[in-house]
Design a protein around this nucleic acid. Structure first.
Lengths: 225, 225
DNA sequence: CCACGAGATTAGTCATGCCTAAATTAAAGA
DNA sequence: TCTTTAATTTAGGCATGACTAATCTCGTGG
């Protein structure tokens, strides 16, 4: 028997959170101490201290005063957690009756608690999904990121130029507001180029809605030129 | 792992484990420091230290050198965890393809990680079950323990005297051995009074099997006189 | 009725991971 | 180049919960 618990993570919850935050914020580029502190909700000195440990343990490359990047090993761990997180979110929505904007916090905790066996059972139950309820890709067990399909569309009826945008799922409160408009990940959403004052006009599956500029910041992408 | 969500336990994982152990071992009677240490896999001094804290926090009554019992508040917390544990076990077996003797460790971890919302979603999914895969009763949300039905039977065919025994689900390894014999909780199992040397004869749903004396210790109850 | 031993508790550490306050460094503008 | 300041790191602590070694207590046998 390798591990009494069977097959649970060799790193602490906290370390996992750091790795995931560096992966999320960095995209390969160095991440600053203060950005990490903000993302993780801890003080900058706490981050400094942890980065020293992560550097020593070979999960992170960190040079004093010059930010942190993930090593290959650190990247592997981060993707392992992202996979867990996204599979759990999808499970909560598809099988446990959660709304898609309620699952993040639950997954944030459970991703550290479940065993590898649990994750693979989930993968089977969900039939090896490639994307989570927010539309984000689910890394495979060996750390590959599925392509997120290009959602650009050539238009149809009106002849207007527009494209499908992808929701940036960050702030639960605003996400709830968007959901109230019928705007949620997975739903086909076209954004017209036209703007009038402080609102954008969106074409959803059934009809159009308006969107305040503030909320429109939650949508990423550029209109087709 | 504290209470940022608003929905998660006010006590630490560790405290929960202590309360559950006192509940399990004590049955209302005082539990000794060393029994607790053995059950929890920690040293007796660790238990001594924790019992002082639990006593101060009002979850446990503990008098130096004279064992610990749960207060009403401590009992409530313990039952809350037992409910989680058993619902999770049942879920793992019914929906995630675990074998009934594989679920204990997973539940031991998850019971501390899931939110109240998760537990109630589980309860709905499982249709408010009263017993877990080991045949143990699942406390209700308000801490009541469902009656475990009396499984005594008057006999049928052979005229022999026997009764149904209940499996004591403790040791995973032996449970696996029992399962290999077709003997598992929920399956109708009659134990004949006859003994020959080192084996007992059991009547299962389809046919009879023999059981070594060692394994028979995992079965509780007395034959009908 | 007292000494002994098993079991319990105290004393003193350690590891994690967080904090605030006080330096230090890098990098930009004068 | 030099100053300034924002970002970062160091220094020093705290809480939790575990450990070992040493000491104490209760209950029992002599």
């Amino acid at each position: 028997m390798t591990n009494l618990v069977g097959d649970r993570s060799p790193i602490s919850d906290s370390v996992g959170d750091y790795l995931k935050a560096i992966w999320t914020l960095g995209g390969g580029q160095p991440v600053s101490t203060s950005d990490l502190a903000r993302q993780l909700g801890v003080s900058p000195p706490s981050v400094s201290g942890m980065l020293v440990k992560l550097n020593d343990s070979g999960l992170v490359d960190h040079e004093r005063y010059h930010g942190a990047t993930l090593t290959p090993g650190g990247t592997r761990e981060a993707l392992r957690l992202v996979r867990r997180h996204r599979l759990i979110e999808l499970f909560l929505v598809n099988h446990l009756g959660y709304a898609w904007d309620e699952v993040h916090e639950e997954a944030e905790i459970l991703e550290h608690a479940v065993s590898d066996q649990f994750v693979e059972h989930l993968d089977i139950l969900l039939e090896s999904p490639t994307h989570d309820p927010h539309g984000d890709p689910i890394p495979t067990a060996d750390g590959a990121l599925p392509e997120t399909p290009d959602r650009r569309l050539t238009d149809t009826a009106a002849g207007a130029r527009f494209r499908i945008f992808r929701l940036l799922a960050q702030d639960p409160v605003s996400l709830t507001e968007l959901a109230d408009l019928g705007l949620k990940p997975g739903v086909e959403v076209l954004m017209l180029e036209t703007e009038e004052g402080d609102t954008l006009h969106l074409r959803l599956e059934d009809g159009e809605v308006s969107l305040s500029r503030e909320l429109s910041n939650l949508i990423e992408g550029e209109p087709i030129g």
